[in-house]
Each structure stands twice: as C-alpha cells, then as structure tokens.
Amino acid sequence: MDGNLYKIIGGIMSKEEIDIFQSALVAKHEVLNEDEKIILLKNLHVLEKQFPKIKSSDPAVKAVGAKKGDLIKITRVSEIAGTSIYYRVVVN
C-alpha cells in the first residue's frame, strides 16, 4: 500500500492501475455467476428489482468488471457480526 501511495504521489500510476481493494475501507466485491444468481433470487423469493442497487459507475463495480443486471456479492468487515454479506444488483 505504501508503494502504491508513493507511485500515486509520483504521478506514475494511472487511474486504472490503482487497486481500490487495497484499501481497508473498500469491501470485497464479487460478481455472481448466472447459476449463483438464479439460486439466490429463488431462495429469497424476490425479483431483481427488489434488490438493493448499485450504480454501474461505482468504482468497485468497474473494478470487478460487472455489467448492468449482474449481482454483486459484497463481503464487509462488520464490527458486530465479524463479516457480513450483502448483495446488490448493478443498474445504470
């Protein structure tokens, strides 16, 4: 991380080269594959539109390369529960 910081300050690193997941403040984002997505929607008895949303312009979404309609699994560090899992659907 220190190395990155140095590069950024030095202006060597481009925006794309920065790994935002290096930061402790950015939670882990993963794209669910089609099967996982179907199972999740079925288990929760919900439609895609009833899911919490995330913009496709979100840096984390861009970093994992998700498109509109993809489900993102977000694994957060939670003070009360250790880790907590959240899902969001990508919207424009």
Binding site: Q50, S84, I85
Partner: peptide
C-alpha cells in the same frame, strides 16, 4: 418486499 438487509442488523 424490497430487500433492505439480508440479515437483520447484520447479525
């Protein structure tokens, strides 16, 4: 029926 949290209060 929109989902707000997947487990109440994260825990």
């Amino acid at each position: 029926n929109n989902i707000v949290q997947f487990i109440a209060g994260e825990d």
